[in-house]
C-alpha cells in the first residue's frame, strides 16, 4: 500500500469488488442481488432517503470541485493587476523593487529551480538505495521498522527542519564550504565566502525532506515488478545487483521517474525550511555558496508587509506560477506511477 505520509493517498484505487453499484438511487446493486425479493419490502420513503443520501454526499464531493475552481479564480483575480502590468516579462526580468513598483520573478524562479534540482541530485541516489533495500534486500522483519523511520522523516514539520537547519546543518555546511572552497574554489560553483546559509544549505535540507517521498513511491513501484522478471534474470545466472539494475529498475523506470517528479513537486513548494536557510537575497549567482531566495520564501517574507496593491498582486502571481507548475508535475508523476502499477494488473507483489 502506498504510504499516506507521502501525500499521495491511493494510487490505483481499483477495488477488487468492482463497481459498487454505480447505478441510480433505488436500484439494487447489480450482480448476485439483482432481481426479486428486495422489491417487495421497498417502500417509497426508502427511495427518497437513498436519493437524499446520495445528493448530500454528492454535494460535499462537488465542494472539492468548487474549492479548486475558487482557488484558481482567486489566484488569477488577485494577480490580475500584475499579469496586466508585466505580462510575460514578469517571468524573465530581474528587478524586484516595491518602491519603483517594478516586479520581475526571475531571481525567485532561479532560486527555486536551482535549489530543487540540487535537492534531486543529492536525494535521488539515496532514495533509490532505500527503495531497493526495502523492496529487494531487507529481511522481512526489518522492512516495517525501516519504512516507518523513513516515513517519519516526512512527518517532521518543516519549521522544525528549518530550526535544525539553522543551528545544526548550517554550521556543518559552512565547514563543507570551507573545504570545497579550498580545493575546488577555482570552479565558479564553489567560489565565494562560506556563509553556510545559502543555496547549498537549502538544497541539502530539501534533499532530506523529499527523500521519504521518492523512496516510498519508488519502493511501491519496485514492488509492483512481477517476480517472474526477477526469476528469469536470476535463472540466467545474473547476480542480484545485475537483476536489480537490468531487470527491476528497467521495468520500473517510468514509475521511478514519476516518483522523482513527485519529489520535485514537493521541493518546489516547500516554504519554511527553505526560507530559514536560503539567505533571502534576490540575486542570481553562479556560486552555490551565495545567498539566494525562492518563490515560496519571498511570498512568506513579503506578503504581510507589502508595499501596495501591485506588490501583493505580484506576490500572488508567484503563487500562481508555483500552483500551475506543481499541477503539471504532479499530474505527470501520477500518470507515470499509475502506468507501471497498471501493467501488472495494479497488484503489488507481496
Amino acid at each position: 500500500m502506498s504510504s499516506s505520509a507521502t501525500g499521495i493517498p491511493g494510487q490505483g484505487h481499483h477495488p477488487p469488488a468492482g463497481r459498487t453499484g454505480s447505478g441510480g438511487t433505488g436500484e439494487q446493486p447489480g450482480g448476485p442481488l439483482a432481481a426479486g425479493g428486495l422489491q417487495f419490502s421497498s417502500r417509497p420513503r426508502r427511495g427518497l432517503a437513498d436519493a437524499l443520501f446520495k445528493a448530500v454526499t454528492g454535494a460535499f464531493a462537488s465542494l472539492i470541485l468548487v474549492l479548486v475552481l475558487l482557488l484558481v479564480l482567486e489566484l488569477v483575480r488577485s494577480s490580475w493587476p500584475s499579469l496586466k502590468a508585466f505580462g510575460w516579462r514578469f517571468l524573465v526580468t530581474q528587478t524586484w523593487d516595491p518602491v519603483r513598483q517594478q516586479f520581475g520573478a526571475l531571481p525567485f524562479i532561479f532560486g527555486t529551480v536551482v535549489s530543487s534540482l540540487l535537492a534531486l541530485i543529492l536525494s535521488v541516489p539515496v532514495s533509490l538505495g532505500i527503495a531497493i533495500y526495502l523492496a529487494e534486500m531487507a529481511p522481512h522483519w526489518l522492512r516495517g521498522p525501516v519504512s516507518f523511520l523513513v516515513e517519519l522523516l516526512a512527518a517532521i514539520p518543516s519549521v522544525i527542519y528549518g530550526l535544525w537547519g539553522i543551528f545544526v546543518l548550517v554550521p556543518l555546511v559552512r565547514q563543507l564550504e570551507v573545504f570545497l572552497g579550498t580545493y575546488l574554489g577555482f570552479i565558479p560553483l564553489f567560489s565565494g565566502p562560506p556563509y553556510g546559509i545559502g543555496m547549498l544549505a537549502a538544497g541539502i535540507i530539501l534533499a532530506i525532506m523529499i527523500t521519504p517521498t521518492i523512496a516510498a513511491v519508488s519502493r511501491d513501484v519496485i514492488l509492483a515488478v512481477p517476480n517472474s522478471q526477477r526469476e528469469a534474470s536470476l535463472a540466467l545466472g545474473a547476480t542480484r545487483w545485475e537483476t536489480i539494475r537490468n531487470v527491476v529498475l528497467e521495468y520500473a523506470q517510468s514509475g521511478i521517474i514519476g516518483a522523482i517528479i513527485l519529489g520535485l513537486g514537493r521541493a518546489l513548494g516547500e516554504t519554511m525550511a527553505v526560507t530559514m536557510v536560503i539567505g533571502n537575497r534576490p540575486e542570481i549567482s553562479a556560486s552555490l555558496f551565495s545567498f539566494a531566495t525562492s518563490l515560496t520564501s519571498v511570498i512568506a517574507n513579503e506578503f504581510n508587509e507589502s508595499g501596495g496593491a501591485l506588490h501583493i498582486s505580484a506576490l500572488v502571481e508567484l503563487g500562481l506560477v508555483l500552483f500551475l507548475v506543481t499541477i503539471v508535475l504532479n499530474s505527470l508523476a501520477r500518470f507515470l506511477v499509475w502506468q507501471v502499477q497498471q501493467r501488472n494488473g495494479g497488484a503489488a507483489r507481496v
Binding site: 501525500g7 499521495i8 493517498p9 464531493a61 462537488s62 472539492i64 470541485l65 474549492l67 479548486v68 475558487l70 482557488l71 482567486e74 489566484l75 488577485s78 513537486g265 518546489l268 513548494g269 516547500e270 516554504t271 515560496t296 511570498i299 512568506a300 506578503f303 506576490l315 500572488v316 503563487g319 508555483l322 500552483f323 506543481t326 499541477i327 508535475l329 504532479n330 499530474s331 501520477r334
Partner: peptide, 19 residues
C-alpha cells in the same frame, strides 16, 4: 473530483495560505 482532490493535495501549502 478524484483528480482535483489530487491536485489540491499537491498545492504548495503557502498557496493555500494565500487562498
Amino acid at each position: 473530483v478524484r483528480f482535483l482532490a489530487d491536485v489540491l493535495s499537491g498545492v504548495p501549502s503557502i498557496v493555500i495560505g494565500i487562498f
